[in-house]
Design a binder for these strands. Structure first.
Lengths: 118, 118
DNA sequence: TTGACATTTCAATGATTCTTGAAGTAACAT
DNA sequence: ATGTTACTTCAAGAATCATTGAAATGTCAA
């Protein structure tokens, strides 16, 4: 993970439709979802969905697998973990701890030289 | 933290200059940095630095404090923690673990129903 | 081979974003 | 008041991104 890749990934995530695609694919789990199913779940035209899927795949966040006529997309959790790791450690030098679930209204700052982050 | 705020934050992070501003401010720690020092560290014109600082502050990633003639910017670690928490838990349902430091080339995926994330 | 289906690519348009330099605002010192 | 310093805002042009619908590609079934 380097800066260029991180910038691309953040760009891919900076769009509500694409964030929704990500959520749909996370919910779908390892089975993944076809492009058509994603377009439907998104309420978008096939070409618009394809555009957003291409942006996410280009950023490395998604994998695509052709199965017969359909193309199945899946989240690449490893890449997301790497991006979060980059933000936490390369950018913020470990001075940030990710909010716990259901505590997302205020972040828990770490006192600079605290214990392990994760 | 909601989707709209997260989209804005990712947009703010999707630019190499702004990522560099973030790194400079993390290095500076709680003391923060003046707009002029940031422009210098960035090798950018004052107006360009101001533009990027405004984008980061608009996204909530930075705080600004006027001290006499200068404006001191600081990272808001809490907001960054909230964004990471949103990505990890709201988007990815806890199925992702942030990469550890120095392990940023391949993400550590969690087997879906594994232990606590952080 | 013809037709149907699933998806992507292309072209055109409109909307944002980036960048630059000039002008404007705020705070202070003399 | 005047000048200086520190920043921001504005305006204009270039570049990038988003959206739409039409055309193209790849796959399968009859």
């Amino acid at each position: 993970m380097n800066e260029e890749i991180a910038v691309g990934a953040f760009g891919a995530l900076s769009n509500a439709s694409r964030l929704q695609v990500l959520k749909l694919l996370v919910q779908a789990g390892p089975t993944g979802l076809t492009a058509g199913a994603i377009a439907q779940g998104l309420g978008a035209s096939p070409s618009r969905a394809s555009f957003h899927l291409a942006a996410l795949a280009e950023a490395g966040l998604l994998t695509a697998e052709r199965v017969s006529r359909q193309i199945i997309y899946r989240v690449d959790f490893a890449v997301i973990g790497a991006i979060v790791g980059y933000l936490l450690h390369d950018c913020c030098q470990g001075q940030v701890r990710a909010d716990a679930p259901d505590n997302n209204q205020a972040g828990a700052t770490k006192p600079a030289q605290g214990g392990p982050c994760c």
